[in-house]
């Protein structure tokens, strides 16, 4: 099998610098890369769409960003529904033909991630190409990955088996792929965007209680942790549900969450 193109995005390393978003525009605005892609409009398209998620309440919060290009799915709805206009190459890259797709706005709606954009002027659907014109010209990575300063976006050209091992080893996940579209974009630390946390601080005699053993029980158990020098604990990657915080072996608080929660300070 031909070597496949994969992108891996580590959510915990992205801090929304937007280099990828701008590098994508730099590559595709004012430049025609036919037959791969026509020019991207100067404004409006987000071939690399960075989504923001804040979790928790002041002051115990965190912030995650999910850079979201076309997922280059193995079983892409756009390829399935519009086989004359959209092709999946042997290396896994999904490309929309800028000539054949002219006027076909339905292609935009076929993407469950909203990753296909309509170009009003040219009347064509457009999206991330993995910079296939550059890959075919010898570049090892697309512009977004090349511009990323934290290493959050990595690009691999691998046999499928090799990537599957990488996937298992690094615990990579697909983004909301309940129907088995099987993307070529995978995420690391996706819980930072998709799941919730319960955080708080323990006090003993009015001072921050460092070194207290804390655990969580209820709808799911979490491994025991020890409070830091501010008496803080944080249980992450939780599903919505009801949880009891246990400190020093005693139940100290029970909460029901549907999103991340800062339970505040708890005197023990």
């Amino acid at each position: 099998m031909t070597q496949q193109r994969y992108m891996v995005i580590d959510v915990s390393l992205c801090h929304d610098c937007n280099n990828c978003f701008i590098a994508c525009k730099d590559e595709h605005v004012m430049n025609k890369w036919l037959p791969y892609a026509d020019e991207q409009p100067r404004h409006g398209h987000r071939w690399m769409n960075i989504q923001r998620k804040e979790r928790g309440q002041y002051p115990r919060i965190d912030c995650a960003f999910l850079p979201m290009p076309c997922q280059h799915c193995e079983n892409a709805p756009c390829v399935k529904d519009f086989p004359d206009c959209v092709v999946k190459r042997d290396d896994g890259v999904v490309l929309i033909d800028p000539v054949k797709s002219k006027g076909n706005k339905a292609i935009v709606d076929s993407c469950p991630h909203g990753a296909i954009y309509w170009n009003d002027e040219e009347e064509i659907p457009q999206k991330c190409t993995f910079c296939a014109h550059l890959l075919d010209d010898g570049w090892s990575v697309p512009r977004c990955a090349h511009s990323c300063p934290t290493g959050a976006i990595r690009f691999y050209t691998l046999e499928k088996d090799a990537f599957d091992s990488l996937k298992a080893e690094q615990k990579l996940e697909a983004y909301r792929d309940e129907t088995g579209r099987s993307p070529h974009v995978y995420y690391k630390n996706l819980y930072r965007y998709e799941k919730s946390f319960i955080a708080g601080g323990l006090l003993k005699g009015g001072d921050c209680a460092e070194g207290v053993k804390v655990s969580l029980k209820g709808d799911a158990a979490a491994p025991e942790q020890t409070t830091n020098f501010f008496g803080d604990f944080k249980f992450d990657a939780l599903e919505p549900g009801t949880y009891t915080i246990v400190a020093d072996g005693k139940d100290v608080k029970t909460v029901t969450i549907d999103a991340s929660l800062n339970v505040g300070s708890i005197e023990i």
Binding site: C17, N19, I22, A23, K25, V29
Partner: peptide, 15 residues
């Protein structure tokens, strides 16, 4: 080297 978003987009300021 690294660069920032505004440098990455300098082309659009020139043109």
């Amino acid at each position: 080297t690294t660069y920032t978003a505004y440098t990455a987009g300098y082309k659009a300021m020139v043109h």
